[in-house]
Design a binder for these strands. Sequence first.
DNA 1: CAATAAACTTACTGTCGAGTAGGTACGGCT
DNA 2: AGCCGTACCTACTCGACAGTAAGTTTATTG
Lengths: 225, 225
Amino acid sequence: MELVNEEASGRPKRLPREVRERQILDAAVSVFSVHGYHAASMDEVSATAGISKPMIYSYLGSKEDLFAACIRRELDRLLVAIADRAKPGLPADQQLWYGVLAFFEFIGANKDSWSVLHRQASEHGGPFAAEHRLLRTRAIELVAALVISAAGRSEHSEIGAAAQRTGESLAAAVVGAGESLADWWLDNPQESARHLAERMMNVVWAGFGNLMDGKVWAPPPEADE
Amino acid sequence: MELVNEEASGRPKRLPREVRERQILDAAVSVFSVHGYHAASMDEVSATAGISKPMIYSYLGSKEDLFAACIRRELDRLLVAIADRAKPGLPADQQLWYGVLAFFEFIGANKDSWSVLHRQASEHGGPFAAEHRLLRTRAIELVAALVISAAGRSEHSEIGAAAQRTGESLAAAVVGAGESLADWWLDNPQESARHLAERMMNVVWAGFGNLMDGKVWAPPPEADE
DNA sequence: CAATAAACTTACTGTCGAGTAGGTACGGCT
DNA sequence: AGCCGTACCTACTCGACAGTAAGTTTATTG
């Protein structure tokens, strides 16, 4: 499990800054994902990267800076992976499908990334929470736009305004379900990405469909306590 | 915001162990929920409880012990709150509705509890993760049982076996959505518990309904890369 | 072949926080 | 009254870890 990068030759080769920075970030993501931000030590990051501690401070700054750099890099990778697959030309359900699929495939191939992005980043009150909320907000907006655009084409077009409002919280639930499903996956890796994505679509798209047809579930009428 | 419990009289009254333990747990839940496990200090817990540090060690043991005690207490409170409302005699959708509603109402009234139970407990590799997984597992089993029982009464009874399997991962998605919605609520407290519960039911119950009618969403046939 | 800059190191400082030693004060009981 | 147990405290130890000072090696370029 030791990720020391130098060859067995023992002599640490001199590498350009760019390469070392990547190695440091790789190590940091791995260490943060295992221990969480607070419990992770810079010494362990430096050991995992096969480098000494002052290099990290020289290249990436403080521990917080390092963590922020991890989040930014992994967030970019995730967003690019999704954007590559959910092309805007497709019908709404297919856009959603490919987006969801790309999401789960990325998580499957980069569980550390997800752990850092979601679990660790949200544990903070600091500037990371903001960064993390950005991801969620973007995702929610994206999904909401898909719902609303789909609702616009529905035969019940008079529900447009209601769908707008309901669509957004529906999107929040959907994104939330995706996040939690991804969390759950970290602990239960037996399922495939495709499977998870299909399950997701089954719940979600059905909910959308009923919404567009104006079928809503209503709580039983009863005296509130 | 200071929760110092003693009166302004200055003299700390002598209280029985039972009472102090409750005060310490209250303080600990509050502090852990704000800072997370690692960043929380025993000094802050003791200050918040209005008591000195050795009392905590004498009554509740180490920091880990204290944290575990918090989780256990809050978990019990949550489960009791739900069991009180989701009576087994009701039809499946109403059981689910009251369970979900009780869940959100509890979270609304005890945001600290949820923060400790979900956010902080899952950040660990240790024995807390196990404790936390127990909550999730129980919830998933409960929901899955509801789905399957509902499916049994559907006119498409031949899908029973398939529903069994699909029902469980559907339940996982539902519980996940609930967890994430609760997380999201911590940051967006403007909605009411009832509202959230209704949104939840709308997505979820629609998904169940379609499942029971055998309507499934299928991905577009295409060459996989 | 200097000389310069960048890659890289060892070995330290200072702080913060978990856990404890060793008490004092207060109430109940005979 | 005087004893005992329990509630409660101040003031410490000790280890872990973020961050740094000050130096050493290597590639490159004039």
